[in-house]
């Protein structure tokens, strides 16, 4: 791939990269910054792009690292909103007094097939966006960036019980949203 080609392909990817960064940083200026850094790093490091993996996969992996760096810097400056730890009450409604499901969870089918379905990721993105910021930050670090839970609590200086509650709520909300907008809607 020649330089102008690479530059053009990277530019075309820019909106996707921006969306990805926005989901995790929730701040347009910060997202612009990390994407800009990513595009520069990609151009400078083009020799490390083997052509074997897809260009997008490669660019996203650079972006992940930039986001991680950014989050680390941010956590040193402190400022993660804490949540209250009454985690249970939100979901008491899912169960009856004897601890049985009020409404049994639906069959979501074979993950391999679901993830290939057109439109699934748009809906997933919509549901991620709907998460409150303090949940989304911790949750994307865990699931999208692949941090260990212990590491997240430490980085963000959260108590581990706070960390659990946040992850728990995020998972349950996402589940509810996908059930409503994707699995229940088909």
């Amino acid at each position: 791939m020649t330089d102008p080609d690479l530059q053009q392909s990277l530019q075309q990817m820019r909106p996707t990269l921006l969306r990805f960064a926005m989901l995790q940083l929730r701040n347009e200026a910060a997202a612009e910054d990390v994407v800009q850094e990513t595009l520069l790093a990609a151009l400078e490091g083009k020799s490390s792009f083997s052509g074997r993996s897809q260009l997008k996969t490669w660019a996203v992996s650079i972006l992940r690292n930039k986001i991680v760096d950014h989050l680390r810097r941010g956590s040193r400056e402190g400022s993660l909103p804490q949540v209250d730890e009454q985690g249970d009450e939100d979901f008491d409604a899912l169960f009856d007094g004897t601890g049985h499901w009020q409404e049994a969870p639906g069959d979501w089918g074979d993950p391999a097939k679901v993830l290939e379905q057109r439109g699934f990721y748009e809906v997933l993105e919509l549901c991620m966006k709907a998460l409150p910021e303090n949940l989304a930050r911790v949750f994307t670090m865990r699931e999208v960036l692949g941090f260990e839970t212990e590491e997240i609590c430490k980085e963000l200086k959260m108590s581990s019980s706070n960390c659990w509650v946040v992850l728990y709520r995020a998972r349950m909300r996402l589940r509810e949203c996908l059930q409503l907008r994707w699995f229940g809607a088909r």
Partner: peptide, 8 residues
């Protein structure tokens, strides 16, 4: 599985 493959 879905989130590990994000953005799809």
């Amino acid at each position: 599985q879905a989130l590990r493959r994000f953005p799809g």
